[in-house]
């Protein structure tokens, strides 16, 4: 079944304490290559029918009203994938 992936990130200009905590841990284990970490969310929405414009429009509305709080987060990507369930045959 087709899957639509919605990715949400905290707004760039606002604090991301979770990302800061991860960055701190990376520094403590001696990682030097990573300068900064930001933590976001990935939602995988499985839909019944084909992914047409109406479905994508619906998902965009859900993404901006429920999956993300656009006061503090941005919806950074909405992508349709055929199937991303491991082991599922097409």
């Amino acid at each position: 079944m087709p899957t639509i992936v919605v990715e949400v990130m905290p707004k760039a200009e606002l604090l991301d304490p979770q990302g800061k905590a991860v960055a701190g841990a990376l520094e403590r284990i001696g990682t030097t290559a990573v300068r900064d970490v930001r933590v976001g969310k990935r939602f995988e929405l499985t839909v019944d029918g084909p992914v047409d414009a109406a479905v994508l429009e619906d998902v965009r509305r859900i993404a901006e009203t429920v999956l993300a709080n656009t006061v503090i987060e941005d919806v950074v990507a909405i992508t349709a994938e055929e199937s991303i369930v491991p082991g599922e045959t097409h």
């Binding site: 606002l14 604090l15 304490p17 979770q18 800061k20 905590a21 709080n69 006061v71 503090i72």
Partner: peptide, 11 residues
């Protein structure tokens, strides 16, 4: 109400 509430800055 306006704005948002996020994880405490000190974690």
């Amino acid at each position: 109400l306006p704005g948002g509430l996020i994880r405490n800055d000190h974690g």
